[in-house]
Design a protein around this nucleic acid. Structure first.
Length: 416
RNA sequence: GGAGAGAUGGCUGAGUGGUCGAAAGCGGCGGCCUUGAAAGCCGUUGAGCUCGCAAGGGCUCCCAGGGUUCGAAUCCCUGUCUCUCCGCCA
């Protein structure tokens, strides 16, 4: 959630920065007004409550002394105040509800150094790593290879579930599993603790990390239960610390987990319909870190480095992109995407996304740490390391041979 | 799915209508003692919002939401969750 106090104090600046992320100034103005109204009402209400409390205390004392008549008089007074309190309370509740819903739907403030831009075309390339492979034969796409080798069974996926579900067979299934193990080990070597988490979480959890209330249409929900399938391990991992006060955060919390991820992919109907680039269910190994505010920039670098290095070990060509304001996700203040080379498409495609959300999720989830006597909000970061399905795609395409087979990257061999 | 019990501060746990934001113990922090440590002793130690330069003050929070009452952690209703036993089951 954005910092409402900051919004109140520094409206022009915040509005300007959020405009780059597509937020209307009018909406912010609205929130600011609601926030001020809420504060005013609350002060008024609290005054009445204070009065009620002290009068009630007096009644108690008088009753004990046996002064019934005096007590009765005060009761009448209190009853008047009570009506007032009820009225104000109702008003306040309405305003708070509205404010909450609106404030929770405002995206995070982009960092000052994030390039301003409209969409993915304005993202800024930071660097390219690795040689783009040259083939002396016509390259095939991973879905062609997958069908020829009987590694990818698209029909079976549709039969069992629906489109955008795929069954992996034989070597593909084994590479998938090898990749998960390789990534987890790789991340552990960077000091991330391996965790295994639930794949279903409740709405409170989804709200803290920003999926709810605004993006409920992207989530699979369990019928008649307050449970959703996770769209990324970022959600359970970050929420491990929801409503917690971390007593010592001198060393950042660093976690990694493998989970499948489930996304409805609403609104991407035409895109990537072939192959397994965009699926309703895909595997991912995720990194999450929780740091003091002053440590999050360093951690961000470390996570980008960790994910990048995994690609380098796999000897897959990739590039790093700094996302522009318009392409930044809802919760992110800053994001670097890693894109891997996909020969059949002749372009780089996203395979990892590392984000610093600053205190945006921490504020929603009340993730705090002790700094002396004070409790301060942490920063939270997340990044894929890596998207497993897309890594499989990259391997199938970049490692394909003339005779229609696929070589196994050397780092993976011990995992197979 | 059936039956029962319960939900209180970092943890254990007392509290059944007023002086309770809450006993006590543990843990944490500070100090004394000690060459150092342990033990012991003394003190301190919930969160959020808000007013104030500060000292300090006010409000809210004892699972959640309603209700009774001048006043609710405490009484009533509803919901959620947890635990135990039985059933089912990887």
């Amino acid at each position: 959630m954005i910092d409402l106090k900051l919004l109140e104090k520094d409206f022009e600046n915040i509005a300007k920065r959020l405009k780059a992320k597509g937020v209307k100034e009018e909406d912010l103005k609205n929130i600011k007004i609601l926030f001020e109204e809420k504060k005013e009402l609350k002060t008024l209400l609290e005054n009445y409550q204070a009065k009620r409390n002290s009068l009630s205390k007096n009644i108690g004392l008088l009753m004990r002394e046996g002064k019934k008549e005096e007590a009765e008089k005060i009761k009448i007074q209190v009853n008047e105040i009570k009506e007032k309190i009820e009225e104000l309370n109702e008003k306040l509740k309405k305003i708070e509800e509205e404010l909450d819903l609106k404030a929770l739907s405002i995206p995070n403030l982009p960092d000052e150094d994030v390039p301003v831009g409209k969409d993915e075309n304005d993202n800024v390339e930071i660097k390219r790593v690795g040689e783009i492979p040259k083939f002396d034969f016509e390259v095939k796409s991973h879905d062609e290879i997958g069908e020829e080798l009987n590694w990818l069974d698209f029909k079976a996926g549709v039969k069992l579930a629906k489109s955008r579900f795929t069954v992996l067979k034989s070597e593909a299934a084994r590479i998938e599993r090898a990749l998960i193990n390789f990534f987890l080990d790789h991340n552990r070597s960077y000091g991330f603790e391996e965790v295994y988490v639930p794949f279903l979480v409740n709405s409170e959890t989804m709200t803290a990390t920003g999926q709810l209330p605004k993006f409920k249409d992207d989530l699979f929900k369990i019928e008649d239960e307050d449970l959703y399938l996770i769209p990324t391990a970022e959600v359970p991992l970050t929420n491990l610390f929801r409503d917690e006060i971390i007593s010592d955060l001198n060393e950042p919390v660093k976690l990694t987990a493998y989970t499948p991820c489930f996304r409805k992919e609403a609104g991407s109907y035409g895109k990537d319909t072939k192959g397994i680039i965009r699926q309703h269910q895909f595997d991912k190994v995720e990194l999450v870190a929780i740091t003091k505010p002053e440590d999050s920039d360093k951690m961000f670098e470390e996570m980008v480095e960790c994910a990048s290095n995994a690609l380098e070990k796999l000897e897959l060509p990739y590039r790093q992109l700094m996302l522009c304001t318009g392409d930044l996700g809802f919760s992110a203040a800053k994001t670097i995407d890693l894109e891997v080379w996909i020969p059949s498409q002749n372009k780089y495609r996203e395979i990892s996304s590392v984000s610093n959300t600053r205190d945006f999720q921490a504020r929603r989830g009340k993730i705090r740490y002790k700094e002396g006597k004070k409790n301060r909000l942490t920063h939270t970061l997340n990044g894929s390391s890596l998207a497993v399905g897309r890594t499989l795609v990259a391997i199938m395409e970049n490692y394909q041979t003339k005779d229609g087979k696929v070589k196994i990257p050397s780092v993976l061999q011990k995992y197979m």
